[in-house]
Computed example of a mutant assay.
Amino acid sequence: MTAAIPEWFRAEHYDDGPVPVPDSSPGTGNAAEVATSNPVLKLRRLSEMKTPPPTKWIARGWLPRSEITVLVGEEGIGKSLLWVRIASRITTGQADPAMKMPTRQPADVVVIVTEDSAGEVEARLKVSGADLTRVFLFCAEDDGSGNPVFGNAMNGDMLTLDAMLAQDGIDPALVVVDAWVDTVSGSLTLKDSQQARQAMHPWKILAQRHDIAVLLMTHTNRMNTANTRDLMGSTAVLRQKARMVLFAARSAADKESEAQHIWVGPDKSNVTGIASALKFTVKVEQVRDQTDDDPGTTAHLIAPADACMTIRDLLGQWKREETDAERAPSKSEQALELIREFMTGQGQPVPTEDVRAHLADNGIGFKAAQKAMNEIGQSRAAAFGAPQTYSLHQSGRS
């Protein structure tokens, strides 16, 4: 039996000959757009096959080479600042111990941005300390506009990018697509899992061909859930196809406070254990003069701290806290709070009947009142036949 494969998949197409001239049309990868070959399918003894090399990392446990990593998070929380931080370390060769990035020789980063201007990207990279001579924007115009469009095969703009990554004078380690969905050809429907897989496949080929990390950025949906699979919504197939998935989030407390933080961590890994999430502080810097139209600021991530739990566990904890805060207290919880409020500021002990009367006035029945009083305090008489008085245990006062 034989099987036809696309011409671009054959290693000799690039190793033994010149890089082909890219087709300028986006294309959709139909049979007319690819050449064919006839490799022979046969049973191959596993013990005699070449052993694949172990996974190589840019950031161990976070960003593998030759693979697709997806970074997903709520829109507007600053998740793009993570790739900026990573790019600054790659282009300067500096270590980032929190993300397990060792000191290395500097390398290049290729960026495709659809939501931020080239000026904003430049400002963020500058304040993060990146070497801008090693950052390349893949776009049509000098001002950063003119985004590429990618189909489901190595043709059109993908083939152009593939050829440029192979040129002399560029040493790429990372390609960032922010936001990936904006670059997908309109002929593909990402809600269709098969078409979504096809849209990701050329990125897998690109990552392996050039031994680079590919980081695809996407947004969560607006579902009220802590389940990361559900939060990925129509792009959930990314989680299945990608080797690594990173999740970025902000807690409700962070959103309400003046201090800005973003929590990021691996949510899925096919090649290593799941690392703990990191809590970054978002620092805003003045980078140009303020005007009526422009605050002149940009932001970067600093002070990473270990969350001591995975991002999935963290989201679950936040959801439970949110649910508990919104849940109406039970009669038992109400009784405990009423007792503490009544006893606060009073010299202890107080007449037991006064405590019971206070609880009854607030709708607490006798049994619930007695149970709550026994849980955090005790009643006793100073002498035989004397009225009982009530006092809180030391542990029951908070």
Rank of each mutant, 00 (worst) to 15 (best):
S128T: 08
D131L: 04
D131V: 06
R134P: 02
V135H: 00
V135C: 09
L137Q: 08
F138Y: 13
C139N: 12
C139Y: 04
C139A: 15
A140P: 02
E141V: 04
S145I: 06
S145K: 13
S145W: 09
G146D: 07
G146Q: 10
N147P: 03
N147M: 15
V149L: 11
F150V: 10
F150I: 08
N152F: 01
N152G: 12
A153N: 09
N155Y: 05
N155R: 12
N155F: 09
N155T: 15
N155V: 14
N155M: 10
G156E: 02
G156H: 03
M158Q: 12
M158G: 10
L159A: 14
L159V: 05
L161I: 08
D162V: 04
A163K: 06
M164F: 11
M164V: 06
L165S: 08
L165Q: 07
Q167V: 12
Q167R: 14
D168Q: 13
D168T: 13
G169D: 10
P172S: 09
A173Q: 15
A173C: 13
V175T: 11
V176L: 03
D178H: 02
A179S: 09
A179M: 01
W180G: 00
S185Y: 03
S185K: 07
S187I: 09
T189P: 00
T189K: 11
T189Y: 08
T189S: 12
K191L: 13
Q194N: 13
Q194R: 13
R197T: 10
P202K: 08
P202S: 10
K204E: 11
K204R: 07
